[in-house]
């Protein structure tokens, strides 16, 4: 097929689209190295000082630690629950399955502010103190649909006869899980962990409402936005966060592809 003019226009459009899509993401890191207190062009010169300003900032480090804790717990929790859901969805046929899975996926289709305030009202209503735990509970809820999506696509190609073969050879259920099921599904599981962690790391609304006096990184950044003088430091911190997300997501994608290939190869 020859390359028609229409196809060239389409190609140019897609390139432009992607440039605009990435422009705001790339812009902040550029200004975070700029030797000026305001993010405006022309650039004034290269500096690391905004990054150096982050070192030894106790409140920020505390927020970073909070984010790590919340992200770890939320991603492990959502992956464990996600494994159950994905297993039920891909392996069993039962009445009400689509309703059940629809309910688990529902947080994806609700405005986040509504999830946040309803959780807030219930938690305060039962007398719970807002803390990292309450953020974890909320993050687990909104990470779950993403974990389920990643895991279902990883589980779909899994051939149940492999497990049956192990059983026939006399392996106990736990041994089958450890020696057959988990190794095959490992990449999908790892990918779910990484995706859920990235979502939790980036999430703002739920953390904003539920974190009380223990901010996560996005909540800390939000607080700093009130001070114009802190903006360059915020940009530096934000750039680090974007870099972390990019690394996590790329790793997750590589894992997901490995899982696909592994299942397709058998």
């Amino acid at each position: 097929m020859s390359t028609s003019p229409a196809r060239k226009i389409l190609w140019a459009y897609v390139v432009l689209y992607i440039v605009i899509l990435y422009f705001p993401v790339v812009l902040l890191p550029i200004f975070s190295f700029n030797d000026s207190a305001t993010p405006t062009f022309p650039l004034k010169g290269f500096t690391f000082k905004w990054y150096e300003g982050l070192i030894g900032n106790e409140t920020m480090l505390k927020a970073a630690r909070n984010s790590l804790i919340v992200g770890s717990v939320a991603s492990v929790g959502s992956t464990i629950l996600g494994i159950c859901a994905a297993r039920a969805i891909t392996r069993y046929r039962f009445r009400g399955k689509s309703a059940a899975s629809g309910l688990i996926m529902a947080p994806l289709f609700l405005p986040e502010i509504i999830i946040a305030i309803s959780l807030l009202v219930v938690l305060l209503g039962i007398g719970a103190n807002l803390s990292l735990t309450t953020v974890m509970l909320g993050h687990l809820l909104i990470c779950l649909p993403y974990s389920v999506t990643v895991l279902v696509s990883g589980f779909e190609g899994f051939d149940p006869s492999l497990e049956e073969a192990a059983q026939d050879l006399g392996a106990k259920p736990l041994r089958v899980l450890r020696l057959v099921t988990l190794p095959i599904l490992a990449p999908a599981i790892l990918s779910s962990l990484l995706v859920a962690f990235t979502i939790s790391l980036d999430e703002f609304i739920l953390a904003f409402f539920l974190s009380g006096s223990e901010p996560t990184l996005p909540v800390y950044i939000w607080g700093q936005l009130r001070f114009a003088a802190k903006l360059p430091n915020v940009l530096a911190l934000g750039s680090l966060l974007i870099a972390a997300s990019l690394i996590l997501l790329t790793t997750a994608e590589i894992m997901r592809r490995r899982a696909e290939r592994r299942l397709a190869g058998r």
């Binding site: 629950l81 996600g82 159950c84 859901a85 297993r87 039920a88 969805i89 392996r91 069993y92 046929r93 039962f94 009400g96 399955k97 059940a100 899975s101 309910l103 688990i104 529902a106 947080p107 609700l110 999830i115 309803s118 959780l119 509970l137 909320g138 687990l140 809820l141 779950l144 389920v148």
Partner: peptide, 18 residues
């Protein structure tokens, strides 16, 4: 078995969302 396996995530969504 299907309901049993899906019960944990389902319960979580019921308790924390619905």
């Amino acid at each position: 078995r299907g309901w049993l396996v899906i019960s944990a995530p389902l319960l979580y969504a019921l308790l924390l969302l619905i």
